[in-house]
Design a protein around this nucleic acid. Structure first.
Lengths: 145, 145
DNA sequence: AAAATAAAGGACAAAAATGTCTTTTATTAA
DNA sequence: TTAATAAAAGACATTTTTGTCCTTTATTTT
């Protein structure tokens, strides 16, 4: 069990790839994205549809169409991607899966777990969709395998 | 999607409950555990079997038998429970699900994600199985719902 | 030794996540 | 305006997770 679902991993990788290509001035088709982030093409299509419905990513149909980000979208936090595909349970849920657990009525693990969750939340809110564009363009890292 | 799997949540809740009862001098049957942590009894049985095989929890069959911890086991870290049921992917895996990603060949998110993972690892290693015994006995918190 | 108890183990079932395929709709270029 | 392109949508298939049930094995009490 990883921290994020496969769906969420694909979504983040795809978003970083599309962000890079948008920075370079291109829109990207599903086939190109799937190839570069090593994900099953039809499954990724579903994920990007979801992101599109939620307004996280932009898309146009037809020739020269594809997925892309505008300047404003490139500054959105990665957290928006996670929320769109996995919901906000990862940001709010109890570590032991207890529904009663809250700040005023905490479970045993609440205080300890809160630190982890806050760190994760902070990371996903300070990391923008376009944060790695230059590094990706320079080939500093890749998004496949 | 929560951080831990359902299996893992049940395992941690069960372990905390059995630890408390062990501290009080009792062994506990699967039915009593399932009732107190609000989990499906046969499914929990499988999980505790796994923990038992891995030597994380102790058990004896027959009348007055059940699950329990000895003093040494009560000091084991919660991380052992997580590893036994979910493996160590949560401690070592890449945030983007990339297999090439490592300290020497990091993915874009590596440095940021490492902080979260380290915090989680630290929390699970410093929290012992018996840590909440007194709080649980005093009724400071519960483990169901 | 026999009966009762409780975990261990294996086979099976349902639900959710992951993955595939085909048709439809929107857009653009010729 | 027609043909080509590419995302959107819906139906379907597989795998994994979650959950159930029944039989076996070990232990204890009578």
């Amino acid at each position: 069990m990883a921290i994020f679902s496969k769906t969420c991993e694909y979504a983040m990788r795809a978003v970083f790839y599309v962000a890079q290509r948008s920075h370079e001035g291109y829109k990207v088709g599903i086939k190109e994205i799937a190839g570069h982030i090593n994900s099953p093409e039809p499954f990724l299509a579903k994920i990007l549809q979801q992101l599109s419905r939620d307004g996280v990513i932009l898309s146009t149909k037809g020739p020269n169409g594809g997925f892309y980000f505008d300047a404003a979208s490139l500054n959105r936090p990665l957290a928006d991607v996670v929320t769109a595909v996995d919901g906000d349970e990862i940001f709010t849920g109890c570590g032991l899966g207890l529904t009663y657990c809250s700040e005023s009525n905490p479970c045993p693990l609440h205080e300890e777990f809160k630190k982890v969750r806050n760190q994760l939340t902070h990371m996903l809110h300070t990391t923008t969709i376009g944060k790695f564009n230059l590094g990706l363009i320079k080939g500093k890292f890749t998004l496949n395998k």
